[in-house]
C-alpha cells in the first residue's frame, strides 16, 4: 500500500480538479442537509418541548429511536419515494444531488429534533416563569429559548453534520455514485476500496477527516466565543 499521507498531501497540493469537485459536492450536499434539517428540526424540537398533547412521550421515543436509523434504510426509503416507479417519480430526482440532500436530511432530522427538544426543555424549566413574567407567551418563548440555547444546540448541529458527512449508505443508493455528478468523499472512498486502491482510499479519508476537523474547530471556537461574550 502506498503511503496515504503522501497521496493525500499530493492530492491537496495539486488541487486535483476531480477531488475538488468531489469535496465541493460533499460539502454542498451535507451543509444543505444540515441547513434544511435545522430549519425544520429546531422549531419542531422546541415545539415538542413546550407542547403538551396525548402521545407526546411516544413521539419523543420515536424521534430518539430514529437517531439510530441505519443510513441504508433512510436511503432506501428516499430511493423508493423518488424512483420513477415511486410516488414522487415524476420529479426525476433520483441519482441527483438533490436526492442525496433529501436522504441526509431524513437521516439527521431526528438528531436535531431530539437534541433541540432536550436543550429547550431544560432551558424552559429554568426560564418559564421569568419569561411569563416578562410578558412572553409559549409561542414567543420558542425563538428566545432557541437563541439562548444556541451553544448547546450547536453541538447537536455538529453531531448532525458529522453523521451526514460520514455516511455512505444513503448517498450511494439515492445518488448512484455517478462520476462527476453524485460522487462524494464517502462514495469515492468506497469505490477506491473496491478497486483495491487502499492508499488512495485512506488518503481521501484523511482529506475528509481534515475537513471535518476544520469545521468542528471553527464551530468550537464560535461556541467558546459565544460563551465568553454572552454567558
Amino acid at each position: 500500500m502506498d503511503n496515504p499521507f503522501v497521496i493525500a498531501f499530493g492530492l491537496i497540493m495539486q488541487a486535483d480538479p476531480a477531488l475538488m469537485q468531489i469535496i465541493s459536492l460533499s460539502l454542498r450536499v451535507t451543509l444543505s442537509a444540515v441547513v434544511i434539517a435545522c430549519a425544520i428540526g429546531l422549531p419542531l424540537g422546541a415545539a415538542l418541548a413546550l407542547s403538551r398533547f396525548r402521545g407526546k412521550a411516544m413521539v419523543i421515543v420515536i424521534f430518539n429511536a430514529l437517531m439510530g436509523l441505519p443510513p441504508v434504510v433512510a436511503g432506501l426509503v428516499v430511493y423508493l419515494l423518488l424512483s420513477r416507479s415511486g410516488p414522487l417519480g415524476g420529479l426525476a430526482l433520483l441519482f441527483t444531488p438533490t436526492a442525496m440532500i433529501l436522504a441526509q436530511t431524513v437521516l439527521i432530522l431526528p438528531i436535531i429534533v431530539s437534541l433541540t427538544r432536550s436543550v429547550v426543555e431544560d432551558l424552559w424549566a429554568e426560564y418559564q416563569e421569568h419569561l411569563l413574567s416578562l410578558g412572553a407567551g409559549r409561542l414567543q418563548a420558542v425563538p428566545t429559548l432557541l437563541w439562548d440555547g444556541r451553544v448547546s444546540l450547536l453541538t447537536g448541529v455538529l453531531a448532525g453534520f458529522g453523521r451526514a458527512s460520514a455516511e455512505v449508505g444513503a448517498v450511494l443508493i439515492v445518488g448512484g455514485n455517478i462520476a462527476g455528478h453524485t460522487r462524494t468523499m464517502t462514495t469515492a472512498i468506497t469505490l477506491e476500496t473496491a478497486r483495491g486502491n487502499l492508499g488512495l482510499a485512506v488518503a481521501l479519508g484523511l482529506v475528509l477527516l481534515s475537513l471535518t476537523l476544520a469545521l468542528n474547530a471553527a464551530a468550537w471556537g464560535a461556541g467558546q466565543w459565544a460563551k465568553g461574550r454572552l454567558g
Binding site: E126, Y127, H130, S133, W147, D148, L230, G231
Partner: peptide
Amino acid sequence: FQRPVLLRR
C-alpha cells in the same frame, strides 16, 4: 425574583 434569571445575552 430571589435569583434573577437573566437571558444568555
